[in-house]
C-alpha cells in the first residue's frame, strides 16, 4: 500500500510557539501524538498540502532539495521565530509536476533561495518530522482550485509515489471553523468563538470518526460556508483524494480553539 498514514492538522503557529498555554498545549500534545503515529507508519516521504501556501497562477510544488531558515509569522511575530530544516523528495515532487500538468492542471516547481515557506508547512514539519528524518513533498493551495481539483491533486501525488515505490504519509494542514477573536484575549481563556461553529466542528469530527464519507461529502460544502472553514476545507479534499476517496474511521487526537478558530488533529484509518 502506498499511503501508510494520513493526518489533518492545524497550521496555526500557536501550539508550537506557546505550548505552555493550556488550550494550545492540548493541541501541541495531540500533534506530538500524531507525529509518533506518523513515524510508526514508516513512510519514505511525507506529502504536505498547506492552505497557507497560497498560489494564484499555477499549482506549485517545492523542488529545492533543502530548505533551512527562520520564518516569522505575519500575524504572530511577537511569539518568536519559526525555524525550519526541511528536505524535499525532489524526485517525487518533479514527477508530480509532470503528472499534474499532464492531467491538465498547470503546475510548476519552485526552487529559489529564500522562497517564503508558509507557517502551516513549517508547523507540520516541526511537529510531525521533528528530527528531519524524512523528506517532504510540499504543494500549494491554488485559490482558484475547487474541491474536485484538490482531490485530484491528492490522487495524482499518490499515483506518482506508487510509480516511484514510495510509501507516503499524507498531511493536510489547515483549520476547521474560521471565526476568530479580532481583539487581544486572555489566551488562557481561549475558546471556539462561535457556539454554532463549535457544533459544526464536532458534527464533522464525529462523521470522520465513523468514516461516514458519503455523509461527509454531502455536509462539507455547507460546513465550509456556515462555519467559515479555512479555505473551504480543501485540505481535507486533498487528504481524501490521496486516500483514494475513502477511509474506514478516524481518531481525533485533539480538538480545541486557536484564538477562537477551530483546530483538530486527526489521524485517518485507511480503508
Amino acid at each position: 500500500m502506498t499511503v501508510v498514514s494520513a493526518f489533518l492538522i492545524p497550521g496555526s503557529p500557536l501550539p508550537f510557539v506557546q505550548r505552555d498555554n493550556p488550550p494550545w498545549g492540548k493541541i501541541a500534545d495531540a500533534l506530538d501524538t500524531a507525529g509518533k503515529a506518523l513515524t510508526a507508519s514508516q513512510p519514505d516521504t511525507i506529502i504536505v498540502y498547506s492552505t497557507q501556501w497560497i498560489a494564484v497562477l499555477d499549482q506549485l510544488w517545492q523542488t529545492k532539495p533543502h530548505l533551512k531558515d527562520i520564518h516569522v509569522d505575519e500575524n504572530w511575530h511577537e511569539y518568536g521565530d519559526l525555524p525550519f530544516d526541511i528536505k524535499i523528495d525532489t524526485d517525487l515532487a518533479e514527477a508530480a509536476v509532470v503528472a499534474t500538468n499532464e492531467a491538465g492542471i498547470k503546475s510548476k516547481g519552485v526552487n529559489y533561495d529564500k522562497f517564503p515557506i508558509d507557517t502551516g508547512t513549517i508547523i507540520a514539519a516541526n511537529f510531525l518530522n521533528p528530527e528531519n528524518k524524512l523528506p517532504l513533498v510540499i504543494t500549494a493551495n491554488n485559490v482558484y482550485h475547487d474541491w474536485q481539483m484538490t482531490e485530484q491533486l491528492g490522487r495524482i501525488a499518490v499515483a506518482e509515489a506508487e510509480k516511484l515505490h514510495r510509501k507516503v504519509a499524507i498531511v493536510g494542514v489547515g483549520g476547521m471553523s474560521g471565526s476568530i477573536y479580532r481583539q487581544v484575549i486572555n489566551i488562557a481563556d481561549d475558546k471556539i468563538a462561535s457556539d454554532e461553529e463549535d457544533k459544526w466542528n464536532r458534527k464533522i469530527l464525529s462523521l470522520m470518526e465513523k468514516g461516514d464519507v458519503k455523509t461527509l461529502l454531502n455536509e462539507c460544502p455547507k460546513y465550509a460556508s456556515e462555519a467559515k472553514v479555512d479555505m473551504g476545507f480543501k485540505h481535507f479534499a486533498f487528504i481524501l483524494g490521496a486516500m483514494g476517496g475513502d477511509f474506514s474511521s478516524a481518531t481525533v487526537h485533539g480538538y480545541g480553539p486557536l484564538y477562537g478558530s477551530g483546530a483538530a488533529v486527526l489521524e485517518f484509518q485507511l480503508g
Partner: peptide, 12 residues
Amino acid sequence: KSVDPIFPNLFR
C-alpha cells in the same frame, strides 16, 4: 531578501 511567492521568477 524578499521573494514574491506568486512571481518568484520575477522578484527576488
